[in-house]
Write a protein that binds this DNA or RNA. Structure first.
Lengths: 337, 337
DNA sequence: CCATTTTACGGGAACATTCCCAATGTTGTT
DNA sequence: AACAACATTGGGAATGTTCCCGTAAAATGG
């Protein structure tokens, strides 16, 4: 049994009208008599009529849909960004398609194809830690489909970006540790491919420089954000001849994992080893000890990015190109430091 | 400037072919010569051609898209369900469109409209705590669009459902508290509108009955899952003439909030007040003290639901109707009890 | 070399909707 | 009564794709 969808033609036939007239009623066009308008609206309601967006989108060459591609979905970070973005999108009559690439480059490429095939009017993207080739994203540029990066950006594409002041945040965090009299501060850094890693590392270095603390390259460990590896690196740090007395971690999950391992070794946080994270995840204030961290306006990041994207969709301009919105971070001092 | 999308007609014209032939190549139809096949594929690649799913969906009366409606997005619970569902969906060539209703009935209704307008082939739904009228969901039934409930189900619709053994899980949790010599066990319950609340409450009652512990209605507090209210209720419990020595909470966020408040009062967990949650959120093992809780196979819930839905979409049957998949829970004992 | 089969391709309808243009009917004005 | 102006409706193209049907050319068989 092939189920038949209720269309405006069905309504038109039942009322001996043309589809044009029915369409006019449904789109709110003025030139239609009150009598037919009422009849159409009533029947539409009764028949559970729902306009078919597919055909409308096809006709208008506009789907009123934006795509969001995020690298992961486990921590509270990206879901919250999405909430912020969806709020604005919904307000502006845009629909959202969400994909997570699972930190996998191939999946990310597949996701962009899917977005294109589904005729999104624009995309919000935060890349995976593996992404080094950006051809799949440049397709959007070539096709004139607006794209906005957030958090994990691609630096050599001149499109709008929304980030936080990673350098500043990292600087403050490390400065805070120094003021707590910590002398050997290690940094569990992110992969070099991500600008956030690079910037936070630079913040770390400059803070040490400012307070004339020698930088020990042994204490800087870039890693691939696979939580399982944290154990290896933390143990490595603890077994150094001259072990660190503090760790500044690239993000909160890393910091939390580090605390777990440090405590399992019988050491105290923060007395033996202070730990500071980045992002202020939902969990961070709940753990023991509560984590000192650099908070970011997460929801705002989503809404700012969405706003930027929709502005770009509506007016067609190119001066937008190189806009970079930098949101403020804030150091939140808790018991872990 | 109106941007022109690359279509099969463009490719056809460039190669002096008909759109039919180009379409045949792109869909992998056999009856086309090797020479033209190669030419078409090459040009398509060069022109960044992407098939327009809108037109295909319109033509096929099938969008290959499923909708997922969840009540919230903050805790790790629903994101993980979504991951499980998306995995299966992607595998089967289905696309996902996700909406969160923000625990708000009107938003949920709006979301269903959006799903319908976008011609989803099926929907996965977990209702809000407010939802008492199900007309908006029955529309799917009337239109013959498969629907599967998960976690928060609507009991008076005979469609497939995926749940966990809430009764069993709650029973075990309370039994565990009893074995820990707790005599007065309170229950921070969910709203009556949700079957999960009702079932967990029943498990609570039956466990007490089995061990012949009198049920004190004063210790059963149904609440609306607004975390801010937990403070009021916990304080209320603590100020009773005969206060409880344990709390069984409807979910982990509630339990965690309760612990925070109890400790702020200077009481010890679990000595003065044991606390048990439900769901085993990502956070639960990280907090202090680690939370005893009933773990659910979250990702599996998503994948099972998606599987059920897609089966329903593919074969058109009605014996599916009343399938209920009950997934197993497991009591995880940690330090909070 | 002619008849028949096979191979490769083109033409056109269909999907649901909107919007422009034309057509009909109705009212008002002189 | 004739004509203009306006209100209301209908017809048809267009959006991008697939698939059925038809047809020409090439290949095969005797």
């Amino acid at each position: 049994m092939k189920r038949h969808q209720i269309t405006i033609v069905d309504i038109a036939n039942k009322l001996n009208l043309s589809k044009s007239t029915v369409s006019r009623v449904l789109t709110g066009h003025p030139s239609v008599s009150e009598k037919t308008r009422k009849a159409v609206l009533e029947l539409a309601e009764k028949m559970d009529y729902q306009r078919n967006m597919l055909s409308i989108s096809l006709l208008n060459q506009k789907s009123n849909t934006i795509g969001i591609i995020v690298p992961e979905f486990m921590s509270s970070y990206f879901p919250q960004v999405i909430i912020g973005a969806q709020e604005i999108a919904a307000q502006e009559g845009y629909n959202t398609i969400i994909c997570h690439s699972n930190e996998n480059y191939e999946t990310e490429v597949a996701n962009t194809k899917l977005m294109l095939a589904n005729q999104v009017d624009g995309v919000l993207v935060s890349i995976t830690k593996e992404t080094r080739n950006f051809d799949h994203l440049k397709v959007f540029e070539r096709k004139g489909i607006p794209i906005v990066f957030f958090n994990r950006v691609c630096e050599d594409m001149s499109v709008p970006k929304v980030v936080v002041d990673d350098y500043e945040g990292a600087f403050r965090a490390v400065e805070h540790l120094i003021k707590r009299k910590k002398k050997r501060i290690a940094h569990l850094a992110g992969p070099d491919s991500l600008p956030i890693s690079v910037k936070r590392l630079r913040g770390y270095r400059d803070a040490l420089k400012k307070y004339e603390i020698p930088i020990d390259e042994e204490l800087i460990i870039p890693y691939d954000l696979t939580l399982a590896k944290v154990k290896i690196y933390v143990n490595h740090l603890l077994q150094l001849d001259n072990p660190p007395d503090a760790i500044f971690a690239i993000n909160d999950p890393t910091a939390i994992e580090a605390i777990k391992i440090i405590r399992k070794k019988g050491l105290r946080v923060p007395e033996d080893m202070a730990v500071v994270g980045f992002s202020n995840d939902y969990v961070s204030e709940l753990i023991d000890p509560p984590l000192t961290t650099v908070s970011q306006p997460v929801k705002e990041m989503g809404s700012t990015a969405a706003r930027l994207l929709i502005d770009q969709i509506n007016r067609e301009v190119s001066e937008w190109k190189s806009i970079i919105r930098v949101l403020k971070t804030e150091l939140i001092v808790r018991k872990s430091s």
